[in-house]
């Protein structure tokens, strides 16, 4: 029996994928090249802009934002102040700004792709049955794997980092948008229809407003997932706090690694609480 199994020829899946990748890279190299160049330019401009703002002003702005976003409470504001000062103090400010750019771009791209995709899924059961397994696949595949096509398409740097993060972070926004819209009570959908709404009137006046808090929860998860890709993306040359962690890891500098990691955690907490508080405010 074992013999029989051993005698079966190996299914050449790996070569297939490889040749598909080759085909893509050789045929679309100009396209990928353009994206790589313009993306890099745009992102480095944003990073420069962020670095150009005096750190103390940016910190104060974030603290004020945190204060008002959490309903004039001091908790998050105090935490942001201390946390950001700590990061600055450790000489990680530039890296923090680079990480911000990375997270910002991958989140925005995920949202821009994810929400329409989620809407499509909610409207068409066929689309849902196709997209759902893809999302499962995207989420269960380890984040590292996305580095391979990212490098193949875009070389190394921040652009492939964003590409890999988008693939990894996209699913929650898509899922939650789909869920939010499907959860709108039937009677309200009927009410919208019975007054003669067009599909887009129904979507923008009824469904999206009612699904908003669910969609926002999805966006929050997407942002957090793209943040979690920061360290992984640094393996292919994405700059930022992640690179500090990686370098420390390679050189077994426990102290540096801890400090950079702590910086990431602080950043993650601030972002998480901020996006959540926006959601709460909108629900009211």
């Amino acid at each position: 029996m074992n013999n029989f199994l051993d005698n079966l020829p190996t299914l050449p899946l790996a070569p297939w994928v490889e040749s598909a990748m080759d085909w893509l890279t050789s045929n679309f190299s100009a396209f990928f090249g353009t994206i790589q160049k313009s993306g890099k330019l745009l992102m480095s401009q944003v990073t420069d802009l962020l670095i150009g703002i005096p750190a103390i002003i940016l910190i104060l702005l974030i603290v004020i934002l945190a204060f008002f976003a959490t309903g004039k409470k001091f908790g998050l504001a105090t935490f942001s102040l201390l946390g950001l000062l700590f990061i600055y103090n450790q000489g990680l400010w530039t890296q923090l700004m680079e990480t911000t750019t990375l997270v910002l771009f991958s989140s925005i791209i995920s949202i821009v792709i994810g929400i329409p995709l989620g809407i499509l899924m909610s409207k068409s059961s066929i689309a849902e049955s196709i997209i759902k397994p893809l999302l499962d696949f995207m989420q269960t595949m380890p984040g590292f794997v996305y580095l391979i096509p990212a490098v193949a398409f875009f070389g190394i740097g921040i652009v492939p980092g964003v590409f890999a993060s988008v693939i990894f972070a996209l699913p929650p926004t898509v899922r939650m948008t789909n869920l939010g819209i499907r959860q709108v009570p039937k009677e309200l959908v009927e009410a919208a229809d019975s007054y003669g709404s067009t599909a887009s009137q129904k979507l923008f006046k009824v469904e999206i407003p009612l699904a908003k808090s669910t969609i926002m929860a999805g966006i929050n998860q997407t942002v957090m997932l793209s943040l979690s890709m920061v360290v992984i993306a640094s393996m292919i040359g994405a700059p930022g706090l992640g690179r500090e962690v990686l370098t420390a890891l390679q050189r077994t500098q426990v102290g540096n690694g801890f400090v950079a990691g702590l910086g990431l955690v602080i950043f993650a907490i601030i972002i998480d609480r901020l996006t959540q508080s926006f959601n709460k405010k909108k629900v009211q």
Binding site: E187, L188, E190, A191, S194, Y195, G196, T198, P209, L210
Partner: peptide
């Protein structure tokens, strides 16, 4: 045509009111 009829000719009232909460 159906949309026009719904807009101009008939309106519906629902058991659980069907009001938009937002």
């Amino acid at each position: 045509a159906l949309k026009t009829v719904r807009r101009n000719k008939m309106s519906m009232v629902f058991q659980n009111f069907g009001l938009f909460p937002h």
